[in-house]
Simulated assay, not measured.
Amino acid sequence: MSERPDLNKNLDSKTFKSYYYLKEELVNFLRKEGLQTSGSKLELTDRISHYLDTGEKKESKTAIKKSHLNKKITLNSIIEENFVCSEHHRKFFKEQIGSSFSFNVLFQKWLKSNSGKTYHEAVEAYYKILEDKKKGKTKIDKQFEYNTYIRDFFNDNKGKTLEDAIKCWKYKKSLKGHNKYEESDLDILTKR
């Protein structure tokens, strides 16, 4: 087993991408190097890879446009390009949907890929997403590697505990390569 290297500017991007790092570790590295720390884990990974390869400080693809922050949102308003989940938007959706509203990942994706549609359509999409979630297993996005691993672990190991799953996950993320569950990960449970 090769030991996971510390995240530092002397790594090359290939080595960096071969290991699992927590989002907190990515943010700390970016902050230390004077790079932008906002964005999803995938965006942060991309920004760090670019920096390690080129030394260039790549900015986030999404920038909040201040003109949208003060505009009154109505059901007939059009969803703007480069949508950003702001407190202004959260307030609107809570007024329309209720206090249980949250920007879940699927809804955020819908908003970001449906600029030009109305906020009325967004509210309808939110309810449809909730309904679809109730009907069955939803797809876990790529950046949620831990959640995917734990789900796959339990699909393959009905009698195991969460403690077992976490022990296997910690072992797996210390290895070079992918972080997908494999039956061979169970070997760590028999090692003392």
Rank of each mutant, 00 (worst) to 15 (best):
T37H: 00
G39W: 04
L52F: 12
H50K: 11
R47P: 02
S40R: 08
E59F: 07
T54W: 13
T62I: 11
D46S: 13
D46E: 14
T62E: 08
A63R: 15
D53R: 08
I48D: 03
I64E: 05
S38N: 09
K66E: 12
D53M: 09
R47A: 05
S60Q: 08
S40P: 00
R47I: 03
S38T: 11
S49H: 04
E43T: 02
T37Q: 12
K65T: 04
A63W: 09
K61Y: 10
K66N: 07
I64K: 06
K58V: 06
G39E: 04
S49F: 05
I64M: 02
K65I: 05
L44K: 08
T62K: 10
T37I: 14
K41R: 14
K58R: 15
K58A: 04
H50E: 12
E56F: 13
T62D: 05
T45A: 03
L44W: 01
S40V: 02
S60T: 13
I64V: 14
D53K: 09
I48K: 03
E43I: 03
I64D: 01
L42W: 00
K61I: 05
E56D: 15
I48W: 03
K61S: 09
K58C: 07
S49R: 06
T62H: 12
I48V: 11
S60C: 12
K61N: 12
R47Y: 02
K57M: 13
E56L: 14
K41V: 04
L52W: 09
S40W: 01
L52H: 10
Y51W: 08
E59C: 02
Y51A: 06
T62C: 05
T62Q: 09
D46V: 00
S60K: 06
G55D: 08
L42Y: 01
D53H: 10
A63H: 15
D53G: 07
A63V: 15
Y51H: 14
I48N: 02
E43P: 00
K57N: 12
I64L: 09
S60Y: 08
D53V: 06
E59Q: 14
L44Y: 00
K61W: 04
L52Y: 12
K41D: 01
A63Q: 15
G39S: 04
S49D: 04
T54C: 12
S38V: 11
T62S: 13
S49T: 07
